Amino acid sequence: MKFRVNRDVLADAVVWAARALPNRPAVPVLSGLLLEADGEDLVLSAFDYDVSARATVEADVAEPGRVLIPGRILAEITRSLPGGQPVEIVTDGSEAVLTCGSAEFGLLTMPVEDFPTLPTAPPKVGAVGGGIFASAVGQVAPASSRDETLPMLTGVRIDIAGETVTMAATDRYRIAAREFGWRPEQPGVTAAAMVPARVLVEVARSLRGGEVSIGLGDGVAGFESVGRSTTVRLLDEQFIDYRARLTDDWPIRADVRAAPFVDAIKRVALVAERNTAIRLTFGQGQVLIQAGGGDIGRGAEVLDAELSGDEIQIAFQSQFLLDGLAGVETEFVRLNMQSPSRPALIAEVPGDADPAFRYLVMSLRQA
């Protein structure tokens, strides 16, 4: 096997594929990246039985072949190579020799025949712009749980109904949901899937360019864009009825400019001890943001707000509140409330249309 490839192209592809490598591989070969050179393409693959990643780049292939190289060290090496120089990789017995300019590395290869067969991509069900996809994942994924003992809560629910896709996540203390349009392969298609949030975040982070194709089938989801593809084993489809919880009756509504609101909460939260509350007092024409009062000190700031309904003081865990506000993409954010002891719904203010992004967050009991 012998090929030559642009240094920046190789480093980018290796680092991207290496993200799928397991931290504690069940067998040693799963820590390797599979390099396959043929024709004018170099394909780099990683697989841990749950998640697979493939990146295809152009290469000058002199001798086709396959080689399995320890993935993390390859990623470190390619990132450190001098720029402006091509990279050549040649297999020589049990060694893969990598040269770039005056730098040379000999990496011991792994038995390629022991590497598991990667899953085939599931049937494509539709596609969406990479920017919209990344935005939706960024809005919803923070509400997923990190507690692996409850797998259902570590995923993002994807509901497909014709030309509309809804993503939702919850960790029991909050629910985030985002709706967006897409281009289905067949009109009237319906499907549902639970995708691990950590995988979806990595996919969204790396597949911003162009259009993202989504495939579903046989308990696997597939995502593909600009020469890169990922497959992931789906979680159990069981999930809460999140839509019913997001369509309650809200007698109190407050509209605030989103960016100044976020900045003010971050400033005031500097004196809040860990897991203490941010208190919001909504009155006519303003909102008072308060925190602290313990061993560190206290902070307060007043912003303009348009209130509809009774005046109210309500408290939230600061990071939960900020995660919801970070998902708002409109100039104004709307807080829909019932009482100080009930959850509040954070939503965008798009005029008369239903908000695309909604975030339900539990309030905190105040002393």
Score class of each variant (00 low, 15 high):
residue 94 S to V: 01
residue 48 D to R: 03
residue 344 A to Q: 02
residue 292 G to I: 05
residue 202 E to D: 14
residue 109 T to E: 02
residue 331 E to K: 03
residue 96 A to K: 05
residue 361 V to C: 09
residue 19 R to M: 12
residue 299 G to N: 00
residue 287 V to Y: 03
residue 7 R to A: 00
residue 19 R to S: 09
residue 126 G to E: 05
residue 224 E to D: 14
residue 195 V to S: 05
residue 305 A to F: 01
residue 3 F to Q: 01
residue 218 D to N: 07
residue 318 S to V: 09
residue 284 Q to Y: 07
residue 132 I to N: 07
residue 116 P to D: 04
residue 114 D to V: 07
residue 356 A to H: 02
residue 169 A to N: 12
residue 207 L to A: 14
residue 211 E to H: 06
residue 192 A to C: 05
residue 264 A to W: 08
residue 146 R to M: 14
residue 226 V to G: 14
residue 96 A to S: 03
residue 71 G to T: 08
residue 258 A to T: 14
residue 57 V to Q: 03
residue 158 I to K: 02
residue 114 D to I: 07
residue 193 A to C: 05
residue 237 E to P: 08
residue 125 V to Y: 02
residue 267 R to W: 04
residue 302 V to T: 15
residue 139 Q to F: 00
residue 316 F to D: 09
residue 209 G to N: 08
residue 130 G to W: 03
residue 367 A to L: 12
residue 36 E to P: 01
residue 357 F to C: 07
residue 2 K to V: 06
residue 349 V to W: 13
residue 227 G to W: 03
residue 113 E to K: 15
residue 28 P to I: 13
residue 45 S to E: 00
residue 329 E to A: 15
residue 2 K to I: 10
residue 339 S to R: 04
residue 59 A to L: 09
residue 103 A to V: 08
residue 86 P to N: 02
residue 342 R to G: 06
residue 41 D to R: 12
residue 25 P to G: 05
residue 31 S to C: 05
residue 123 P to V: 01
residue 320 F to C: 11
residue 190 T to L: 12
residue 197 A to E: 08
residue 2 K to M: 08
residue 220 V to T: 13
residue 265 I to Y: 01
residue 213 S to Q: 13
residue 290 Q to G: 13
residue 256 V to C: 01
residue 82 P to I: 02
residue 30 L to Q: 00
residue 202 E to Q: 11
residue 64 P to G: 02
